[in-house]
Measured scan of single mutants.
Amino acid sequence: MASDGVVVEIGKVTGSVGTTVEIPVYFRGVPSKGIANCDFVFRYDPNVLEIIGIDPGDIIVDPNPTKSFDTAIYPDRKIIVFLFAEDSGTGAYAITKDGVFAKIRATVKSSAPGYITFDEVGGFADNDLVEQKVSFIDGGVNVGNATPTKGATPTNTATPTK
């Protein structure tokens, strides 16, 4: 695992066909100046998982989280898009600690492993708008004895992609 920078880890949970599971997305290594904004994309298989919603985690402190935390689910493109932009203008609602960034709610549709993997990152910046190093650890849903650990090695991303 990367020793510096922010680590975004997609949790690994267990479920069975027809059940709804909650998959946490963790941030670790949050910089001392916090995270003022970030955007990134995960990939998944809508034939295996139906993403039914995404909720902000406990490290989102904006009293009205829909102003700073936004997501979009595109089953036709097989992606989930995340956007966080601190909304106070003063840094008061920045992410300042490690913990759960988001909770992905999904219904298991198939007995195949439900991988959720890193696809791309736009950027991560602290309260001074300084770009942060970030790496990703894939996860998803274990169905029966299947284990979604494909790509469990962190993917280092030093520069934003478009």
Rank of each mutant, 00 (worst) to 15 (best):
T66H: 14
F101H: 06
T155G: 09
Y115G: 11
I104L: 12
P75A: 06
F27Q: 12
T96L: 08
T66W: 14
Y44V: 05
S110P: 12
V108A: 11
A2V: 10
A112H: 11
I52T: 10
G151I: 07
T96A: 11
N156H: 13
V6K: 02
I104Y: 14
G144P: 12
R105H: 13
T157G: 12
N37V: 01
E9V: 12
G29L: 05
D126M: 01
I35M: 05
F124G: 00
V48K: 02
G53C: 12
Y74P: 00
K33E: 02
D126S: 04
G5E: 07
N127I: 02
T14Y: 05
R28P: 10
E86V: 00
T117W: 07
G140V: 12
V8M: 02
S32Q: 07
L83K: 00
A125C: 06
T155P: 10
V130H: 13
G91S: 13
G11W: 15
K78L: 03
T90V: 15
I95H: 03
F101K: 04
Y115V: 11
N37A: 14
K103A: 06
L49M: 02
T161D: 12
P31C: 00
I10Q: 04
N47E: 10
I23G: 11
F40Q: 03
V61Y: 09
V48S: 05
V81A: 02
K103Q: 10
T159E: 15
Y115W: 14
S68F: 05
T157L: 11
I60K: 15
A94V: 05
I73T: 08
Y93M: 15
G89W: 15
F118A: 07
F118S: 07
I116D: 01
I80A: 05
A36T: 03
A102S: 14
D128M: 05
I54P: 05
F82N: 03
V8F: 00
G122H: 00
T90L: 08
R43G: 11
N47D: 11
K12H: 10
K78T: 04
N64Y: 12
I137P: 07
N37L: 00
D138V: 06
P160E: 14
T90H: 08
P63W: 12
V81F: 01
E22G: 06
D138W: 06
K103Y: 15
D87Q: 15
R43F: 05
I52M: 11
Y26L: 14
V48L: 07
I35Y: 02
D39Y: 01
F69Y: 11
A36Y: 00
Q132E: 02
G18N: 07
P148Y: 03
T161P: 09
T20E: 07
V134C: 06
I10W: 01
G99Y: 10
V6I: 15
V48P: 07
K162N: 05
G151D: 09
N127G: 03
P148F: 02
I35C: 01
V30T: 06
F136R: 09
V25M: 01
I116Y: 06
A146Q: 10
A94E: 07
N145K: 14
L49W: 02
R105M: 03
A72T: 00
A102W: 12
I79A: 01
G139A: 12
T66R: 13
G91D: 15
E120N: 03
D4I: 14
V7L: 10
P63I: 12
V25G: 04
P56N: 05
R105L: 13
A85C: 04
A158M: 09
G15I: 10
D45C: 07
F101A: 07
V6Y: 01
F27C: 01
A146I: 12
I60E: 15
I54Y: 02
F84C: 02
I52Q: 04
Y93E: 13
V21R: 09
P63H: 08
K78D: 15
Y44W: 15
C38T: 03
Y93W: 14
G123Q: 00
S110M: 11
K67R: 09
D98H: 08
I80K: 05
T149K: 10
I54A: 03
A152G: 12
D138A: 11
Y26R: 11
I10S: 05
G122I: 00
G57M: 13
L129Y: 15
I54L: 04
G114H: 09
K109L: 08
T149F: 11
T71S: 05
T14P: 09
T90S: 06
L129C: 02
R43N: 15
P63G: 15
P160H: 14
V81C: 01
P65F: 13
D45Y: 05
Y115S: 07
V141T: 12
G122D: 00
